[in-house]
Write a protein that binds this DNA or RNA. Structure first.
Length: 196
DNA sequence: ACCCAGGGTCATA
DNA sequence: TATGACCATGGG
C-alpha cells in the first residue's frame, strides 16, 4: 500500500529500474512505512532516493504525501472514501498530479480509474483513435466510458499498453516500422523494462 | 554525445 | 489557458 504510493511518486518521468534502486535503499533500512518515513529529514530522504532522479523534488513530494496521510489518520480512513472525493483529496497534495493520483487510486486503493500516461497517449494517437492533444481528463473520460468499469480490466489494459508502448517511436509521429510492429531504427532495441 | 524514461510545479504572457 | 524552464539519475 504505502510502498505503492511511494513508487507512484518516484516513477514520475523516470524509468522503473531506477525507482527499484531507490525503493531498495528505503526497504533495506526498513523505511517503507508511513511512520518511519514520516520522521525522516528531507536531506536524508533525498540521499536515499537519489537513483530515482529529481531526488530533491521527490523527497519534498514524498514528505507532502506523508503529511497528508498522517493528517487523514492513515490509509484506513482513506479507504472508506468514495472514488471522487478521494481523488480530489490526493490532488490537493503538492507533487501529486492527475496521473500519480490515478496510479494510487488504481494500484493502491483498487478503484476503477483508468491511468493515462505518455504511452497511452502515444499509442492511441498513433493508431488514430485519438488526436493525442486532448486533456488528461478528456482521455480518461474516453477510456472510462468506453470500457467496463473494472479494476482488473483497467489493470491489465494498462499493463498491455505499457508493454507495447515501449516499442513505439517517439521521434516520428507516423513511423511505419513502429506501426506495423517492427523495431524501427530510431528505436533502441531493448528499452528498460520491468513493472511495479 | 544524444535521447529517453509510465510528471508536476511554477513563472510568465 | 497555454507554453517554457526546471528538476537529475541511469541505460541504450
Amino acid at each position: 500500500m504505502f510502498e505503492i504510493m511511494v513508487g507512484a511518486v518516484l516513477t514520475q518521468n523516470t524509468a522503473w529500474t531506477n525507482v527499484e534502486r531507490a525503493i531498495g535503499n528505503l526497504k533495506s533500512l526498513d523505511l517503507l512505512s508511513l511512520d518511519a518515513m514520516g520522521r525522516l529529514g528531507r536531506k536524508e530522504l533525498a540521499g536515499l532516493i537519489r537513483p530515482a532522479g529529481y531526488f530533491n523534488v521527490k523527497a519534498q513530494r514524498l514528505q507532502n504525501l506523508c503529511d497528508f496521510l498522517q493528517r487523514q489518520g492513515g490509509e484506513a480512513s482513506l479507504s472508506r472514501m468514495a472514488d471522487g472525493p478521494l481523488r480530489e483529496a490526493l490532488l490537493e497534495v503538492n507533487g501529486v498530479g492527475p496521473e500519480t493520483a490515478d496510479d494510487i487510486l488504481l494500484y493502491a486503493f483498487e478503484r476503477p480509474v483508468f491511468v493515462i500516461d505518455a504511452y497511452t497517449r502515444r499509442l492511441f494517437s498513433r493508431i488514430g483513435l485519438v488526436a493525442g492533444d486532448e486533456s488528461y481528463e478528456k482521455l480518461r473520460s474516453i477510456f472510462e466510458t468506453g470500457l467496463e468499469s473494472s479494476v482488473d480490466l483497467f489493470n491489465e489494459y494498462h499493463a498491455l499498453i505499457v508493454r507495447h508502448g515501449k516499442y513505439i517511436c517517439t521521434k516520428k509521429p507516423r513511423c511505419i516500422e513502429c506501426c506495423i510492429g517492427r523495431h524501427c531504427r530510431y528505436l533502441s532495441k531493448n528499452r528498460q523494462s520491468a513493472e511495479p
